[in-house]
């Protein structure tokens, strides 16, 4: 029988974490599948389990100084039902797994699982989200991109727990999210694209672009984004093949049971172009027309 710890408080949990080589588990939706052994058999856990999904400290969802603080134990359904969560993030969450799984799965679990296909990750990368890692020695706050070090790999230390995710409370005028699965309902992601931007006077003020499931971790490039900011949408559309070429160098997908590397790469770049050519160009025109209308 594997040992289980079920602390009542975060403080207690951190103590146990420091004391034992144990496996933190929240909703269990990833771990229970990864460790499953088959019909009527117990999952193959070798380390004691540290149950943390219920900890009250990890259930909080609040806005502090224009930053959304999400407890690592908050389940996806509660994020979907929250008024604090931006619509684009909800759009992403609504396409994750299925209702009964979303009633179990925590956001912290999705992050710590660090799957290249992790559905919350493109958004968190794009928002420059930070993760709070606590131990009995104190806490570290690091960017999500630094926390996830590779497929299924994180910088979580043996004494630490991921306790909170901090997302700047920023919303963008233009948002496009596309998840490509093998089917419409309940599907793992073959490729995902997230584009968000603010445009004023026909010029791009801020832009965030992230690709999921097409490399070892989320693909986002501050450098390319910076090169786009300040340019007019017209120029960008003209220059689209150059931007596409730059991202192409970063997108390195694999062939697997769900799709092919060639498709993943092509479709990612097509979605990028779609974002610029259709969404961005159209919406910025629309906004111009609207502001004109306001003046008149």
């Amino acid at each position: 029988m594997v040992k289980g710890f079920r602390p009542e408080t975060l403080k207690e949990a951190l103590k146990l974490r420091a004391q034992y080589d144990c496996l933190p588990i929240a909703g269990g939706t990833d771990l229970m599948v990864q460790k499953a052994r088959g019909f009527a058999l117990k999952p193959d856990f070798r380390k004691p389990l540290l149950f943390i999904g219920h900890l009250p400290e990890l259930q909080r969802l609040e806005v502090i100084n224009r930053q959304i603080h999400i407890g690592a134990g908050v389940i996806l359904t509660d994020l979907l039902n929250s008024e604090t969560i931006p619509d684009i993030f909800k759009e992403i969450l609504a396409l994750m797994a299925s209702p009964p799984s979303r009633n179990l799965a925590s956001i912290g679990g999705n992050i710590c699982n660090a799957s290249p296909a992790g559905d919350t990750l493109p958004y968190l990368y794009a928002m420059d989200a930070q993760v709070v890692l606590q131990s009995t020695d104190g806490e570290r706050i690091i960017p999500i991109a630094g926390f996830i070090t590779g497929p299924k790999q994180t910088d979580l230390k043996n004494s630490e727990l991921l306790t909170k995710i901090i997302i700047p409370q920023t919303e963008f005028d233009i948002n496009m999210y596309r998840k490509i699965g093998q089917r419409k309902g309940m599907s793992l992601t073959k490729a995902a694209f997230l584009g968000m931007a603010n445009v004023a006077d026909g010029k791009i003020q801020d832009i965030r672009i992230a690709f999921g499931s097409v490399a070892q971790t989320v693909v986002r490039s501050g450098k390319i984004e910076q090169s786009i900011v300040g340019k007019s949408t017209k120029d960008i559309v003209k220059n689209i093949s150059e931007i596409s070429r730059q991202y192409a160098a970063l997108i390195r997908p694999i062939d697997d049971a769900r799709s092919s590397a060639a498709y993943r790469k092509k479709v990612s770049l097509r979605l990028l172009e779609e974002f610029f050519v259709s969404n961005l160009a159209k919406v910025s025109n629309l906004r111009k027309a609207q502001s004109k209308g306001d003046i008149e």
Partner: peptide, 30 residues
């Protein structure tokens, strides 16, 4: 299926549908 895909094992936990194949016993306390 035993992997949260089919929903044949759905029960209600605090009124909400959940896949019972994905829930370790330690998570049902209370």
């Amino acid at each position: 299926c035993g992997e949260g895909e089919c929903g044949a094992c759905i029960v209600l936990m605090d009124g909400r549908a959940v896949n019972s194949c994905l829930i370790p016993a330690g998570n049902i306390i209370g």
